[in-house]
Design a binder for these strands. Structure first.
Lengths: 237, 237
DNA sequence: CGAAATCTTGACCGATCTCAACTTACGTGG
DNA sequence: CCACGTAAGTTGAGATCGGTCAAGATTTCG
């Protein structure tokens, strides 16, 4: 799967600006005082991965939190019978590795750089020290976890109860929401990945989107862009 | 849905023994010193619900953690299109309400007493005070959340990639695991609920179990008991 | 610019849902 | 503690959603 061996730059104090930019992006840290932030940044080291490289795989021991400072990371799982499902895509400022920080210390998922990517890492031990020292960070992480748990359970319920068509419609709806009045969205991933994310196949995605277009609910534009013409229509499919 | 109005016993210091038994059952608290435990119990109050009663519903404001001291609670969600999915069943010592404690403060799920049930409650404010005071509790909760998130994401992946048959087999496998050598399990819920939990219908559950029995993988006994005859056979269905 | 990956469309098939009728189990109240 | 009524479970027949395989068109990236 992974394409080329590429040299990691394991720099410890190489580019402090990058670390700062990165760490301060992260919601769980951005409420801290400047000096606390500095303290955290010192505990951080950065690593680069190139497109296609695996950052960790299921079964790997885990002892660090990874924060994306640039690039994108695909998080996916393999089911018991070996099929792949895309769990989420991490953009700069988002983090992963958190699950293993408080549990077994073993990853259950795979993380793969979708393009050349730089991450900041904090080890479990260091992070837990910060948590004990600044309990508000723990509250932030709890809040972040709740959010993610909520999302995950909602997703589970959708898989359990909704048709593929509805799942696609709900996905599109979530893409537009936030974008005020803008009824044009850019799919954040390939249709292949979208299929994996939504628990279906690329063929079905193609067909359903074509169907939605026929019915006049959406219009597909070049470059993964989609114009939503009738959101309500979509949602009561 | 709910059957009979029944009086809640909102006792504040009524039955301290019950509270203690209940609170000390909970993994997130059971590492505490006796005096800290007392402190928490004082912040607790207990409420009784009778069979079928709704404890909270989606949209309700939430400001408490509920710990089951006796009875059972069904947690379920309604999808966007109104279909119900069983998320989990809480037994004594387990808790719910945690999601809303660190987020919006609005429940996204429904909680219903499956039988006469008694819960201990702690308000958000009180809990957060304990968290700031005893950061190890936060670590415990983080650990619990990680666990649940892991479970939820695994579940999502199964829905996304496995057939109903495999999902049932995996469910049975998880029921036996832990039970050393004992190849007989008792389904923890009705087949109707199991269907809802696994994202299928009671009819399909019936048929698949019958099929597994035909093939000699399991044997269905009275009272929701199932004997697993060939676990490996089941799992490579 | 060209190879490789993604995407599209068609034909076909199978897993699972729906609806319906019937049987069984269980909680409630007398 | 038993009987009754309601809820749960079973089984069949039919319909359908969505997956698979295959071939071809299009895009992407080195």
């Amino acid at each position: 799967m992974q394409k080329s061996r590429c040299h990691h730059s394991k720099s410890h104090a190489k580019d402090v600006k990058t670390h700062k930019a990165c760490v301060s992006l992260v919601p769980i840290f951005n409420h801290l005082e400047a000096d606390q932030m500095d303290e955290i940044m010192k505990a951080t080291r950065s690593i680069s991965y190139c497109r296609g490289e695996i950052i960790y795989r299921a079964g790997d021991k885990s002892d660090s939190l990874y924060i994306v400072s640039s690039g994108r990371i695909r998080i996916y799982r393999l089911s018991e019978s070996g099929k792949e499902q895309l769990v989420r895509i991490l953009n700069p400022g988002e983090f992963t590795g958190e699950l293993a920080l408080f549990r077994e210390g073993i990853h259950e998922a795979y993380a793969e750089a979708m393009m050349d990517t730089n991450v900041c890492m904090i080890t479990r031990t260091e992070l837990q020290e910060f948590l004990m020292k600044y309990p508000t960070i723990a509250l932030k992480i709890l809040s972040e976890f709740s959010e993610r748990l909520e999302t995950s359970e909602k997703q589970t319920t959708r898989f359990a109860t909704e048709t593929v068509e509805t799942r696609i419609a709900l996905f599109l709806a979530e893409c537009v929401e936030g974008e005020n009045q803008v009824m044009e969205i850019k799919l954040p991933m390939s249709k292949k990945d979208l299929a994996s994310y939504l628990g279906t196949t690329p063929e079905t995605i193609s067909r359903k989107l074509a169907e939605m277009e026929d019915k006049g609910y959406i219009r597909q534009l070049p470059q993964r862009k989609i114009e939503i013409l009738d959101l309500d229509g979509l949602l009561l499919l």
